[in-house]
């Protein structure tokens, strides 16, 4: 097949909502876009282990300790599935990790915020995972097969994450005045950064257009953000917490909430390394990588010795 026919074949598959598979021909930009998006997603999962990991050793009950550990473990698993999906595009995990650890790759800005109290475990599960799920449910139908399959598995596993977060918030909101204050404070700190997770407004999003055209994304940043707000307000009201947005108002005509604009300057700063915890997060992953170097080298040496012995 010549180049035009290959391109037509690719477009044809997209039009029929068929998945693109690793060995299929695909435009270079499609491949590049996917590598960038999937690896950012993977990095976010792996860096995302840290803010919650921060509370595993301090979880206030045995049940909470086990749930949190299982959840953070899942995030590691999700990072792993996503690195695998990215690897099918012809890039190695070594290279992907190098991109992360050398500061070249981006990851979700939300994980550069500190977790200052136990209620932050609730806010992250409820809001951050809630926002992530919006995106991930959509991505189950993404056009690239390995990415879509990873997302199906991830969505299945994620289903308890948001619930456990909301449960933490509900218990705190119904608890002592100190606990309730803790819950409200966590909501105040995580609300705006969560809204930023959906990315800039469609008009200002550099990569949105291609992503929609190639059916990598099937809904826009603004659509997803609106749906998240609509879904979350009643949940906050139910447990007696207040969303920290003075402009929040039900709009009968659009059957949704009007809400304020996140601080996009802050978003840009955090994305470009100037968030409260960027250095700590990357530093922690870099330390883990460096500390593990002798382990990986030993495992490789052991394996090659055994091969010699067996031969």
């Amino acid at each position: 097949m010549d180049a035009t026919a290959l391109a037509a074949n690719f477009e044809n598959k997209l039009a029929k909502n068929e998945n693109i598979e690793p060995k299929d021909w695909m435009p270079d930009n499609y491949r590049k876009h996917l590598i960038r998006q999937i690896s950012q997603h993977a990095h976010s999962e792996v860096v995302g282990m840290l803010p919650e990991g921060n509370w595993i050793t301090r979880a206030p009950s045995l049940r909470r300790k086990m749930v949190l550990l299982a959840k953070v473990q899942d995030e590691g698993g999700h990072g792993l599935y996503l690195y695998s999906a990215a690897e099918t595009l012809g890039i190695s995990r070594e290279e992907l990790l190098h991109q992360l650890l050398s500061g070249k790759a981006k990851y979700s800005s939300i994980f550069n915020y500190p977790t200052l109290s136990w209620a932050d475990m609730g806010a992250i599960g409820w809001l951050v995972d809630g926002a992530a799920i919006m995106n991930q449910v959509m991505l189950q139908r993404t056009s690239y097969g390995p990415y879509a399959r990873a997302m199906v598995r991830i969505c299945k596993e994620e289903s308890f994450h948001q619930r456990q977060g909301y449960e933490i918030m509900s218990v705190l909101a119904a608890g002592s005045p100190e606990q309730k204050a803790m819950a409200q404070d966590a909501l105040n700190r995580f609300w705006w950064p969560t809204l930023m997770m959906f990315g800039p407004s469609d008009a200002n999003s550099a990569n949105s257009e291609n992503a929609i055209k190639w059916k990598i994304k099937r809904e826009s940043n603004d659509q997803l953000r609106q749906r998240f707000v609509n879904q979350t307000i009643p949940q906050a009201e139910l447990i007696g917490l207040t969303i920290p947005d003075a402009q929040l108002k039900w709009n009968e005509a659009k059957q949704g909430y009007d809400f304020g604009e996140p601080d996009w300057e802050e978003f840009n700063q955090v994305i470009h390394g100037n968030g409260p915890c960027n250095k700590e997060r990357l530093g922690a992953r870099l330390k883990a990588h460096d500390d593990g170097k002798w382990v990986r080298e030993a495992a490789a040496a052991y394996a090659s010795k055994r091969k010699l012995v067996a031969a």
């Binding site: 299982a70 170097k293 382990v295």
Partner: peptide
Amino acid sequence: SEWTGHGPMLEEELASANTALDLI
């Protein structure tokens, strides 16, 4: 459980967490 997020390989962080969950 202190290894979660700090292990030598991603696979190993999951493995350590599995054992930790059994023990707890």
